[in-house]
Design a protein around this nucleic acid. Structure first.
Lengths: 184, 184
DNA sequence: GTCTATACCTCGATAGAC
DNA sequence: GTCTATCGAGGTATAGAC
């Protein structure tokens, strides 16, 4: 038995890590399976032992990113200090620069919009989960607030990433933090 | 003189209209020059009489979209009713569905983030212009508010577009409108 | 499970006729 | 300026050996 089960699971995890990193940085179309597999220290042919297609990889990568990104810290019984910490880490240049695990909602927003059913569905589920968790907090007045705050945070990161002026990006993130913190 | 100057200008405008529509809907990589030219009722070979490359087309399409999208209504001497109207039209399902001219800031956000210098620069300039105009309004307290409100509106549209649940998208847009209108 | 090799396809860009 | 034709590069997915 030359390849153990843990070996395969380890390979799969490495592929997903690479996929999240590359898809978030370059978008679905610009990433090649060769890139992903090389980044995971494997060869292209081995890909199909783990995923049926590039589309399936993308869908699984969104879930993987949701489990590892900043929003994953939103457990079911999140408290106020944890939320404050999340806001601080989310609306930060290190997140925008993708130095840690990126939030798929912000990094893949317009990339998902052009995809088909299953991928959109996955994105939607991830979004719903987060809005539900934020909305369950005692300091959040209503669902309206949870929706608007999520849009503000996602939009802030998405725009900050597109700008080529670091100072403006920092100002934008700071303004978003101020706004959000005034509402929680 | 078989081709007049207005004929060329007309062709160029048609190419740009098609480019804005297709890039906004599908993103940079998924759009082929063949698609753009067919949509503009021309053939692929004619493309290079108007633009040096696909990258240049993309950059010019961002400017074209900025001049025709909802934010174009923000003239230098915008007043309060015009702003209210802009918010209503921007955070609307018809905009999300790209039934009118789309706002490049929302539709191309993560698509621009992966591009190179000149394109990012163009996006940044378009964004700066809008923040400046919004910030100049008497009811906007400070630059912080202008930045946060823009992020909220762009994020709202970007996320609403990615979701596959129309009801949730509508709720999201409505929440964003409520939030923004409370601040202007 | 992972590798090499390859079939098949599509796209950006160019060449040359009109 | 616009057309047809084509080159060359690079992509997904598959086949078959180990």
């Amino acid at each position: 038995m030359p390849y153990s089960k843990t070996h395969k699971e380890n390979s799969r995890r490495r592929i997903l890590d690479s996929a999240v990193k590359l898809f978030s940085a370059q978008g679905y179309d610009a990433v090649t399976l060769d890139q992903v597999m090389q980044d995971a220290d494997l060869t292209r042919g081995a890909f199909y032992a783990h995923f049926k297609s590039k589309q399936v990889l993308y869908k699984d990568a969104i879930l993987h990113a949701a489990s590892n990104g900043p929003v994953a810290t939103l457990s079911d019984k999140i408290d106020q200090p944890a939320l404050t910490e999340l806001i601080r880490k989310y609306l930060d240049m290190s997140h925008v620069r993708q130095e840690g695990s990126p939030c798929p909602l912000a990094f893949l927003a317009t990339d998902v919009a052009k995809q088909e059913g299953e991928i959109r569905e996955t994105y939607t589920q991830v979004y719903k989960d987060i809005v539900d968790k934020v909305g369950a907090l005692p300091t959040i007045k209503d669902t309206d607030s949870a929706l608007a705050i999520s849009a503000l945070m996602i939009g802030g990161v998405a725009v900050a990433r597109a700008l080529n002026d670091d100072e403006l990006s920092r100002d934008l993130l700071k303004s978003c933090r101020k706004f959000v913190e005034a509402f929680i």
